[in-house]
């Protein structure tokens, strides 16, 4: 055999083998294309359905009775406010909590829900945890003052329930708050 031809063939074979050397490249299948115009539609036609998304069958959310609503609107328990991104109690908040504690001790059957809220300048996920932390800051302070832990619950609304929907410093400072809601007499 002609050695030169052999060498050429060898190089050619190597090139063929190594050409698709780019790692991960799918190998091309040497499949002859089917005759032009020949199609292979499936013999059965699948039925397409657009599944219906069902709404939730709701039951009414329990709301506070009118008499409690009235107590809450009378401002028996005062709100406390927080600094930006903070959950520690400011001096004015401590003053308010002392007054709230006195009211709760005087009306010893009242049960309350402490709602923690945030302004809009935080993210959804972090804010809702920050609101939780704010509600618990007031809760822990009231427990330390001797208000029974069993009379209080906490809930965070994050930034979902602003008191003032405006986008300014004044609104933000009023939205960073704990609200004390009487839920039972």
């Amino acid at each position: 055999m002609n050695r030169r031809l052999f060498a050429v063939l060898l190089v050619f074979a190597l090139v063929v083998v190594l050409l698709p050397g780019c790692k991960g490249k799918p190998k091309e299948a040497p499949v002859a294309p089917p005759e032009t115009g020949v199609t292979e539609h499936p013999s059965t036609t699948p039925m397409v359905e657009s599944p219906t998304i069902k709404p939730i069958t709701e039951t009414p959310v329990s709301e506070l009775p009118d008499d409690l609503d009235q107590i809450n609107r009378s401002g028996l328990l005062k709100k406390v406010y927080f600094d930006f991104d903070r959950a520690d109690l400011r001096a004015d908040a401590i003053e308010t909590l002392n007054a709230n504690a006195a009211v709760l001790k005087k009306h010893s059957t009242l049960r309350i829900r402490i709602e923690g809220h945030c302004d809009e300048r935080g993210t959804e996920e972090y804010n809702i945890s920050l609101g939780d932390r704010r509600a618990k800051a007031a809760y822990n302070y009231l427990v330390n003052l001797g208000v029974g832990a069993g009379r209080m619950e906490t809930v965070s609304y994050g930034k979902s329930q602003p008191e003032d929907p405006s986008h300014n410093e004044d609104a933000w400072s009023r939205n960073r708050r704990d609200v004390f809601l009487v839920v039972a007499k």
Partner: peptide, 24 residues
């Protein structure tokens, strides 16, 4: 169809009510 190789690539058939046109 693959135009360069003049070859058929894939064929499908779907059925349904008129309202599922978008889904199809």
């Amino acid at each position: 169809h693959d135009v360069k190789t003049q070859s058929y690539v894939l064929g499908k058939s779907y059925g349904g009510e008129m309202k599922v046109a978008r889904q199809i």
